[in-house]
C-alpha cells in the first residue's frame, strides 16, 4: 500500500513536467505575444500607432526574446522555489489571486456535482430498475437534455429568462460564501445548475449501467431469492454496491470540471480560475496559464489517487501492486 502510494506520487513528477512542457511549447508556437498586446491594449481597433520598435523593446524587458528553453528553465527554477511569478499582463504576482479563485471554482464544481448527483442518481436508478420501459426512456431523455445543448446556450437562456421574464438577475459584485452566504448562493446557484444540467447525463448513465450490472450479480439474485422486496433489494444491496463506481466516476468528473467550467464562469460572472484562464489565454500570459494548469493538474492527479485509494479500501478485490 505505502509503496503503491509512493510510486503514484513519484509518477506525479514526470507527469507535471510533461504538462508544463506541453504548455510552454504551445505558448511558444502560438502566434502573438503579450508585449504586442500590452502595447495595443488587446483591442482589435486600438492597435493603430504602436511602433514595432517599442514592441521589440518591451519583449526584451519581459524576457520574451530569450530562447524558449532558457525561459522554461528560468520559469521552472522559480517554480521549484515556490515562486509562481508575475503575470506578464497585469504585472502582479499570480499567487495573489490563484488561491481565492481556486476556492471559488471548487465551490462551483462541488455545487454543480452535488446538484447533478441529487438529480441524476434517482434518474439512473429508475432507468435501470425499469429498463426498457416508458419510465426508462423518460428519465434517460431528461438526463440527456443538458448534454444535448452547449453550456453557453444553457447559460444564455437562463440569463434571458431571468432578465426578460422575471426581470431579475443575481446581484453583481461577487460575495464570498463565508462572508455573505445568501448573496453568494444567489450568485452561484444558476451556474451550478447549468453545470449540473450538463453533467446529469454522465452521472445518470453511470448510475444506470452500474445498477444494471449489480442487479445481475449473484448476491442480488440471492437476495431476491430470499424473498426480499424489490425496494429492499435495490436499496440495501444493489444501490450500495452500485454507488462505488458512481462515486469514483464522479470524482474523476470533478477533476475535469475544475478546468472546464470556463464558459459558465464567464457568463455568470463567477471569479474563478476558468475566468482567469480565458483572460490569460487571450493575453498570451503564459505565466498565469502555467500556474493555473499546474495547480489544476496537481489537484486532479491527487484527487484521482485519493479516489483510487478509497476505491481500494471499499472494494477488497482491488490489489495494489
Amino acid at each position: 500500500m505505502t509503496t503503491y502510494i509512493v510510486r503514484r506520487l513519484l509518477l506525479f513528477i514526470p507527469t507535471i513536467l510533461i504538462v508544463t512542457i506541453i504548455i510552454f511549447l504551445l505558448m511558444w508556437i502560438v502566434p502573438g505575444d503579450t508585449a504586442m498586446l500590452i502595447l495595443t491594449g488587446n483591442d482589435p481597433n486600438e492597435g493603430g500607432r504602436v511602433s514595432l520598435e517599442d514592441v521589440e523593446r518591451l519583449r526584451a524587458k519581459l524576457g520574451l526574446d530569450r530562447p524558449v528553453h532558457i525561459q522554461y528553465a528560468d520559469w521552472l527554477w522559480d517554480m521549484l522555489r515556490g515562486d509562481l511569478g508575475e503575470s506578464l499582463w497585469y504585472q502582479t504576482p499570480v499567487i495573489d489571486e490563484l488561491g481565492g479563485r481556486f476556492v471559488t471554482t471548487v465551490q462551483l464544481a462541488v455545487m454543480g456535482m452535488g446538484l447533478a448527483f441529487i438529480i441524476a442518481v434517482p434518474l439512473g436508478i429508475i432507468s435501470a430498475v425499469k429498463q426498457d420501459t416508458k419510465l426508462d426512456y423518460i428519465s434517460r431523455i431528461v438526463a440527456l437534455l443538458g448534454i444535448a445543448m452547449p453550456t453557453f446556450l444553457i447559460a444564455i437562456v437562463v440569463t434571458y429568462v431571468l432578465a426578460y421574464v422575471f426581470d431579475w438577475l443575481p446581484p453583481l459584485d461577487y460575495a464570498n460564501l463565508w462572508e455573505q452566504p445568501l448573496t453568494n448562493l444567489q450568485q452561484m446557484v444558476f451556474p451550478a445548475l447549468a453545470i449540473a444540467f450538463h453533467d446529469l447525463a454522465f452521472t445518470a448513465r453511470v448510475t444506470r449501467s452500474s445498477m444494471l450490472e449489480t442487479m445481475r450479480d449473484d448476491y442480488v439474485r440471492t437476495a431476491r431469492a430470499k424473498g426480499l422486496t424489490e425496494m429492499g433489494v435495490i436499496g440495501r444491496h444493489a444501490l450500495k454496491n452500485a454507488l462505488l463506481p458512481i462515486i469514483t466516476v464522479s470524482g474523476y468528473q470533478f477533476g475535469r470540471l475544475l478546468g472546464g467550467v470556463v464558459i459558465v464562469e464567464v457568463i455568470f460572472l463567477v471569479p474563478g480560475i476558468g475566468n482567469m484562464l480565458i483572460d490569460a489565454i487571450i493575453h498570451r500570459d503564459f505565466v498565469v496559464i502555467q500556474a493555473v494548469v499546474v495547480l489544476v493538474a496537481a489537484v486532479v492527479m491527487f484527487l484521482n489517487l485519493v479516489i483510487d485509494l478509497i476505491y481500494g479500501v471499499l472494494d477488497p478485490r482491488i490489489r495494489y501492486q
Binding site: 506541453i22 478546468g259 470556463v262
Partner: peptide
C-alpha cells in the same frame, strides 16, 4: 498530462 490539462487550453 494531456488528461490533466484543461481541454479548453
Amino acid at each position: 498530462a494531456l488528461m490533466s490539462i484543461p481541454g479548453l487550453i
